Computed example of a mutant assay.
Amino acid sequence: MKKQMSFSTKGNRADLGSLAIQRMLPNRHTNIVGPFVFLDYVVPAIKETINKNGMGAHPHRGIATLTYILQGEVEHTDSAGNNGKIYSGGAQWMKAGNGIIHDENFNYDSQTDSKYIHGFQFWINLPAKNKAEKPAHISVQANEVPQKILPDKSGWLKVLVGNYEELNSKIPNYSRLFLYHIHLEAGKQFLIQMENKLEVAAFLITDNVMLNETTFQKNEFVEFDRNAGEIEIKSTSEGSADIILFGGEEYTDPIVAEGPFVMNNQAEIIDAYRDFYAGKYGKIIQATKI
């Protein structure tokens, strides 16, 4: 049985400095998919100059951030002393835990001739028991992202978070969740089975995509029902197709989100702000040049 679509949306503009941003989650239909509480899509753009100042240091608590850069490079620095730089196809994960200040710097890929910037940032809500843990950071380069060729050479699947068959991401999980990038060649298709009670959504990077016989446009966000079932992804004959498929088990703890903090009650939000203004998150001393 094929899964049914619950809704689709194109999100809202939420530009950040020179970056054109489409905010896909939360949206007018839902605030969460599994543990994913936030999704910003960095719309493809040409960047001619290198920005050395970052996007602006800011705090987080209670979540993990995940940046996946399709094209370009992203440099990370934070108040726990972590630094890292990823290039096209790479991802970086930061557990904010009990509080951190970080900054990210989006630029074109200095390793290639491409001037494009294109990617995603997700926020993954931590279970209540993990929100008080110490911050952590992991950089994953493109060649470290688990990938497999799909049957009949129809395309490939990358595992950014979670697992698929024999593939396992090096990014930690604190609940049952997944984040895949699926690429299909023109005219090809791929069938994936989803378990019961999993919350599942897709983001279409390109046109030329059909999901369970329904055609969607690029930059469209689609959520499915929670019943077990199949998702059939087809690339039309006009060209290849790319989608992000993500989700996980229902987040059952209470959720209170305000600004950069996602906690389980209002008292914890107050504490998050109080600790930030008291300087308990530390400060970014200086980004290491890498």
Rank of each mutant, 00 (worst) to 15 (best):
L191Q: 14
E199Q: 10
F203D: 00
E166W: 11
M194R: 07
L198Q: 09
I182Y: 01
L177V: 13
D207T: 06
Y174C: 00
T206W: 09
N196M: 05
G162P: 10
L177T: 12
A201N: 01
A186M: 02
K197Y: 05
H183M: 13
T214L: 09
E213F: 04
I205C: 02
N173Q: 11
N173D: 01
E165C: 03
F203A: 01
L179P: 04
H181T: 08
Y174P: 01
Q189S: 15
F216E: 03
T215N: 06
H181D: 05
N208S: 11
K170W: 10
P172F: 09
L167A: 02
L179C: 03
L198S: 09
N168R: 13
A202E: 06
S175D: 11
L184S: 04
H183A: 12
M210V: 14
V161M: 00
Q193W: 13
N173V: 14
E199A: 10
L191V: 15
L211D: 00
F203Q: 07
L184N: 06
K197A: 12
L184H: 00
Y174K: 03
E199Y: 08
V200Y: 07
L204G: 04
E185T: 14
A186C: 12
Q193K: 14
G187Q: 04
L211C: 04
V161L: 02
S175M: 10
F178A: 04
G162H: 06
H181L: 02
F178L: 03
S175F: 02
M210Y: 14
L204W: 02
I192V: 15
L184M: 07
N208T: 08
L211S: 09
N196A: 05
E185Q: 15
N168Q: 14
P172N: 05
L177G: 10
F203P: 04
K197I: 03
D207N: 09
M194W: 12
T206Y: 10
E195G: 11
T214M: 11
V209M: 08
K197V: 00
S175I: 07
